[in-house]
Design a protein around this nucleic acid. Structure first.
Lengths: 353, 353
DNA sequence: AATAAGAACGTGTACGTTAACGAAAATCAG
DNA sequence: CTGATTTTCGTTAACGTACACGTTCTTATT
């Protein structure tokens, strides 16, 4: 439609109009020192008038430095393969933008060991990155780290779980409350009135509770909102080994067998194994994440529903958002909630993380 | 890990090693004329040895020409808003790569009018684009068009439905057979033995049959594979207006009321309306696409399942794949099947196209 | 053998930006 | 008011590639 700007707008066009040199224009654009307030204002005005957008390609070419991004996520443990998916997503994004002067380094920490997290944080801060992609599993430690980042003007993107009051560039991941709410929704679908429901949190570090609690909240909120007379119990299991889970559940089930169990994370396979090995029937099971071990139980009917939130896409979008921000693209959506997918026996074959 | 190549590999490093000028290297890289076989081979060898990757940013900068892409998709009609989603996806991708010297123009055709399709094709061919993004709804016409593209070395990407024997850069969209197969899967879940199932194809142009038939095939294949004694009927409705649909269905239902209806495209809302207005109960309904009109019926229980395949992502990835190809990025996945999502009353709130 | 024609190759400038280097102007100390 | 700083600004060489133009070299024609 429009045919204006034949005079190839750019830094030198700005210079011409402002009657200064391109050097000066460059200084105000990258707000470096050494330009008087008066001329700075003048240049800024011209820039605004022209709606000037810097040519990113020329920029990358000239400043031969590459953008360095550090990704800090949990290591793929033998306990759960969950983090394979985000890892893959980040890698995919990284290879797509490698040509554009971006390099991404991975740092892994042990989900059961805060110290590894802290150590990696220190290393990252020492290594002079331009941006951070982070899964803030340990809330307190993450806050510390992010404070440090903020002090150094280091932009960061959060994935998988959010820290709402941090000045993050973006959060990409589940809306935990809604996710639990949906589980509640499904529960209403599966249980009748006056039946019993058990919420199970399995996690070593109490800090996880932040993550799990939000889901629990949503779950309870949904059930409460429709005031069915459903009894809701709850158990926290601080040991992730199967034996520990089994023992704890045996005690509980002896006292009182629930009609439905809601496991607030991907450890649902432990509960499934428990149900299967002890030949407990008539207990419905809802849990999280598209993992091999979970799918097996979904297939044989022990698990009824898995809730999944595109872990791979979280990684992909996480890195991409950070990149977009770093090249000062106009805007990055600050809150990118992933869809809440329901996986069942019927459609798991067609799901893609 | 590696610390080699401090000598900034690039066109001039190649020139140095091959003892020629950068001009010559440039000629062989862009295989222009004017270089002897002997030196060409020598240069190519050096290029291979260095594993030289051209600097895309420098390339775009130097050749100030922008990559021009034409997208040809159906217009958003008042009959169905489906194509809003791919359109949005394409736009999203376009704005992400606008900074990198890419411009995308849209061309729309009327789904009920082959001529509009042909006309737009002609216009596109005349306008000298560098790549085409196409929804090949009209099989025959699309083939013609794509033959012409191939003749001009115009790369193209197909979305939404595939033409398998065309030399497309990529296809991004549903695996239609699998999609129908899943519908069959769900059907088995919903109907009992000896019940009746009706397949409904609603579409004006017979050429669509290509698209719809594949789904039907998959559907039948699934039912056949598990030899339940389910009776499968079928009806083709060539008129998309509600009145036409109603009339045809009335006739059919008078003779024989099916227990489940499978509509092979997004027109499922017409059938839902029919069922509702005529107060027909006990008929399950499966159809396609996350559209407002469909969701309404999903919500009130008239439609049981909607199958959806990320139309927006199809657009996004379609444009991105084409772009990646045009800047001669290493590889583009040639077949990108979208996941087959199942939307129900329980999770539609959380679905994202 | 002289010349034209064309193939093969080199040179130089441009793309829009960054950043280092100085020159000019303004400010300050005495 | 002079000299020394400091602030402000202009100039210029890159970055890696594309492309127009010029030059040299080869071959064919007369």
């Amino acid at each position: 439609m429009k045919k204006e700007q034949e005079t190839t707008k750019g830094i030198k066009e700005i210079a011409r109009l402002a009657k200064v040199s391109i050097g000066t224009v460059d200084r105000v654009i990258n707000n470096r020192t050494g330009v008087s307030v008066k001329t700075k204002e003048k240049v800024l005005q011209i820039i605004a008038e022209l709606d000037y957008q810097p040519n990113i390609m020329a920029r990358m070419l000239a400043s031969k430095k590459v953008i360095r991004i550090a990704a800090l996520i949990p290591a793929v443990s033998n306990e759960t393969g969950y983090w394979n998916a985000p890892l893959k997503g980040i890698n995919e994004a990284a290879s797509e933008i490698r040509n554009f002067g971006v390099s991404a380094d991975f740092y892994f920490f042990d989900q059961n060991n805060k110290k590894t997290f802290r150590d990696q944080c220190a290393v990252i801060l020492d290594n002079g990155y331009d941006g951070i992609l982070l899964a803030p599993m340990f809330e307190e430690e993450a806050m510390d780290f992010l404070d440090n980042c903020a002090k150094r003007d280091l932009p960061f993107v959060l994935i998988n779980s959010d820290l709402e009051h941090q000045p993050r560039v973006a959060y990409i991941g589940p809306d935990l409350f809604q996710s639990g709410y949906l589980a509640g929704h499904l529960t209403k679908y599966l249980v009748k009135e006056a039946q019993q429901v058990l919420i199970v949190n399995i996690s070593r570090e109490i800090t996880f509770q932040h993550h799990l609690l939000k889901k629990e909240e949503g779950f309870r909120a949904c059930l409460a909102a429709h005031d069915l007379s459903i009894e809701v119990g709850k158990v926290d299991i601080n040991e992730t080994s199967y034996d520990a889970v089994q023992q704890r559940l045996l005690e509980l089930f002896d006292l009182n067998k629930p009609d439905l169990v809601f496991v607030t994370n991907s450890r649902v396979s432990s509960v499934a194994r428990f149900l299967q090995e002890n030949a407990i029937e008539g207990v419905q099971l809802i849990g999280y994440d598209f993992l091999e071990e979970n799918i097996a139980y979904l297939k044989n009917g022990t698990i009824d529903f898995l809730i999944c939130q595109k872990p791979q896409e979280q990684g992909y979008r996480g890195l991409m958002s950070l990149y977009q921000h770093l090249i000062s693209a106009p805007t990055v959506e600050q809150l990118q909630y992933m869809p809440i997918d329901i996986i069942t026996k019927e459609n798991y074959l067609y799901y893609r993380n």
